[in-house]
């Protein structure tokens, strides 16, 4: 298993792997996204309280999940890369960071658009919104660090440690819902006993979440390939 992973980490092997996987991943993303979009925007019924406006959750919630997910994945990959010295681990985190930052920004923008009609304000400094903003700055800090350290090896390892320290903030983000009893709703999907989102709305939401994750996978592979090509051309960017 380790051998196979180490082999995969060599660029030619990785390129073959990407060429094999990419079409399927992209097709899966497009299919789920199209179905999910139709399901959530057309087929799913309007909410009893929020009317049609609630439909923004089909973008907002998957983006919020993904923004957290990417950071945790980056930190895990960074930790693994630090211990077992995978060559691709720094490429993975470097390619993920802008994607994560973009989805965090998307979460903030859609949340704000949703907040105006629903709560009566564009922005509330409650724990969850603030945590999402902190997450954005964590991403930006990592990206800035990557851009300032010139030595490749120290850049990779210092970035990995920063990610691991930053991931300690992720539980704070996740449990902030319970810490602060705010006007932002409690996380209603994460309760496994009886989801209080009606199935007619829950299924398209979950489908959109899967679609977003597939998009992340597709974009990640492309971005990693770009970084590897840049490196081959002698730019020696990243890794």
């Amino acid at each position: 298993m380790w051998n196979w992973l180490h082999q995969l980490a060599s660029p030619p092997c990785f390129n073959r792997f990407v060429a094999m996987l990419l079409p399927w991943l992209a097709a899966a993303w497009l299919t789920t996204f199209m179905i999910g979009l139709w399901w959530s925007l057309v087929k799913a019924p309007a909410d009893y309280q929020q009317g049609e406006g609630y439909r923004i959750i089909f973008i907002h919630v998957p983006a919020a999940w993904l923004s957290l997910f990417i950071y945790v994945v980056m930190a895990s990959v960074a930790a693994i890369g630090l211990v077992w010295k995978f060559k691709l681990a720094p490429v993975f985190t470097a390619a993920s960071a802008p994607l994560g930052a973009a989805f965090t920004a998307l979460t903030l923008v859609t949340g704000s658009v949703w907040g105006k009609p629903m709560w009566g304000t564009w922005w509330v400094w409650d724990a969850r919104l603030t945590s999402e903003l902190i997450l954005l700055f964590l991403y930006l800090g990592y990206i800035a660090l990557q851009n300032t350290i010139s030595d490749v090896r120290s850049r990779n390892q210092a970035g990995a440690i920063l990610l691991i320290v930053g991931v300690v903030n992720i539980p704070i983000i996740h449990y902030s819902v319970e810490w602060w009893n705010t006007l932002h709703q409690p996380a209603s999907i994460m309760k496994f006993d009886s989801p209080s989102v009606h199935p007619q709305m829950l299924y398209p939401l979950l489908l959109m979440a899967i679609s977003f994750k597939l998009f992340y996978g597709t974009a990640l592979l492309l971005a990693m390939q770009c970084i590897l090509w840049q490196r081959q051309r002698g730019g020696n960017e990243y890794a």
């Binding site: 309007a46 909410d47 009893y48 609630y54 959750i57 709560w119 709703q185 009606h198 709305m201």
Partner: peptide, 8 residues
Amino acid sequence: HDENYMPL
């Protein structure tokens, strides 16, 4: 708003 989402 409460955390219940359901059709009208």
